[in-house]
Design a protein around this nucleic acid. Structure first.
Lengths: 271, 181
DNA sequence: AATTTACTTTCAAAAGC
DNA sequence: GCTTTAAAAAGTAAATT
């Protein structure tokens, strides 16, 4: 297992140090550029002459070297492809450069530790991006990641779990709070609503009202309630649309939150 | 060890009659059969009592799912093989039946804060966006538990009823010592 | 808006792609 | 890995009424 550093294990209370990084940091310098001379597959030199038997051992060593060079060349092509794929996904999701860079760190780490075997580059890129978004507190749902990449939701989730396990990435469950800024701004709601929604979510978490519920649904309901309380109400339909959940889900979370946090009266005065 | 009652919900077992079978004949001879070789090599046979489903392969091996008890699972396999014997009289009366997996449910009688469990408990996976249950993998006994906010639990992967029960009880005690229950 | 049906997760075996 | 089977848990979704 590989250690990506404590910042990726913010919630690992135990054994967070004394682990040695495996292998040296790798820089993706193109080191075979300009190498045009081929080492022939047969035992001939560039002039087609036979190679003296006593030099063949050396010749084989050269071929072995070239094989490595070829492989690393493919590795670099793959990295270039992965990074362009990452750029495409990131821009489609409107993510800041910092998140994209965090994702590239995860991806390179996966490559360095040979975790790509048997997996598609697109899948690992998507999973790296999903992890980076969460790590940077600007989460995207698996559906959103799957939408912009050419990977299914199932594969993004599976690859994410694999990377998390192999790279010792331990991220806490996505908090509904992290979805509030994005949903709020997309709904054109003022900052006060955001603050109020976050207060509601904090209260909900303490009363165990978020266990097992989808973070986006909780965030959506909290924002809806906050908008009503502050007199800048949005329709459930609009909130549902932005949050990517159904109106039924918002109603269910709404009912639960207002009942358990006794907000019935406040909501009535808000109307 | 705290006693936690469990309820067996499903049992998967397998057996081999030791000789090959022509599935096309089996599909003609039995009722409630579905067979699409291209889709899946096994023939699907649904038995009424015990209410189970069997997968029959041309190799003579079969899988039984859906039984609520080990006895029922064995009865189901024997009934299925009896029906197969109408096609081939030489199918042996005696053969081994192996319990492959037992799925059980239980109730811890207390709500769980899954966010806290996810952070404190080892070997867990919790992705509420995808599924409301928290996945807890136990090494001994080697079973997988699904923990829900309601305190309900599902245990799967056990080969014996005792392991299923032990798995739930070990999970209960571990949650207890971490003060998560 | 209430019902119903259905999909998400976990597990194991079977034969073959 | 996938295909097929069954079953529970609880949340979410979609189609009907």
């Amino acid at each position: 297992m590989v250690d990506m550093g404590p910042e990726w294990r913010a919630f690992d209370h135990e054994q967070r140090d004394k682990r040695t990084r495996v292998g040296a940091p790798i820089t993706y310098t193109i080191h075979d550029k300009g190498l045009s001379t081929m080492i022939d597959w047969r035992n001939k030199d560039i002039y087609g002459r036979d190679i003296p038997a006593r030099n063949r051992a050396q010749w084989y060593r050269l071929r072995k070297w070239q094989r490595k060079i070829r492989i690393s060349g493919a590795t670099e092509r793959n990295l270039a492809f992965a990074l362009s794929e990452l750029d495409r996904d990131s821009s489609r999701l409107g993510l800041p450069r910092s998140v994209r860079e965090a994702a590239s760190v995860v991806y390179r780490s996966a490559v360095d530790n040979k975790l790509i075997r048997g997996r598609s580059i697109e899948g690992v890129v998507a999973a790296s991006l999903y992890a980076a978004c969460r790590r940077c507190s600007v989460p995207r749902t698996l559906d959103e990641i799957a939408e912009v990449s050419r990977v299914t939701k199932k594969e993004v989730g599976r690859t994410y779990r694999f990377l998390a396990r192999e790279l010792d990435i331990k991220l806490p469950p996505t908090s509904p709070v992290d979805y509030v800024p994005r949903f709020s701004s997309e709904l054109g709601l003022p900052g006060e609503v955001q603050s109020r929604a976050i207060e509601i979510i904090d209260q909900a978490m303490e009363k165990g009202l978020t266990s097992g519920r989808g973070p986006t649904g909780v965030a959506a309901a909290a924002l809806y309630i906050a908008s009503v309380l502050l007199g800048v109400r949005k329709t459930q339909r609009d909130v549902a649309e932005i949050a990517g959940v159904t109106e039924v889900t918002i109603r269910n979370r709404y009912k639960e939150l207002t009942e358990e946090l006794d907000m019935g009266g406040s909501l009535l005065s808000g109307l | 060890m705290t006693d936690v009652p469990i309820k067996i919900e499903n049992i998967v077992s397998s057996a081999s009659i030791g000789k090959e079978i022509e599935l096309n004949e089996v599909s003609k001879a039995l009722e409630d059969v579905r067979f699409n070789k291209e889709q899946f090599p096994g023939l699907v046979f649904k038995l009424k009592d015990p209410k189970t489903a069997a997968l029959i392969f041309s190799s003579g091996k079969l899988v039984c799912t859906g039984a609520k008890s080990i006895k029922d699972s064995k009865i189901a396999i024997n009934k299925t093989v009896d029906l197969m014997r109408t096609i081939d009289k030489d199918i042996p009366k005696k053969f081994d039946i192996t319990i492959q997996n037992i799925v059980a449910s239980a109730n811890l009688e207390a709500t769980l804060n899954l966010e806290a469990v996810a952070i404190e408990l080892e070997n867990t996976e919790y992705e509420p966006e995808q599924f409301p249950g928290l996945v807890y993998r136990l090494e001994d006994p080697k079973v997988v538990l699904l923990l829900f906010g309601s305190g309900k639990v599902v245990c799967t992967g056990a080969k014996t009823k005792d392991d299923a029960k032990l798995g739930v009880e070990r999970a209960y005690d571990r949650l207890m010592q971490l003060e998560l229950l």
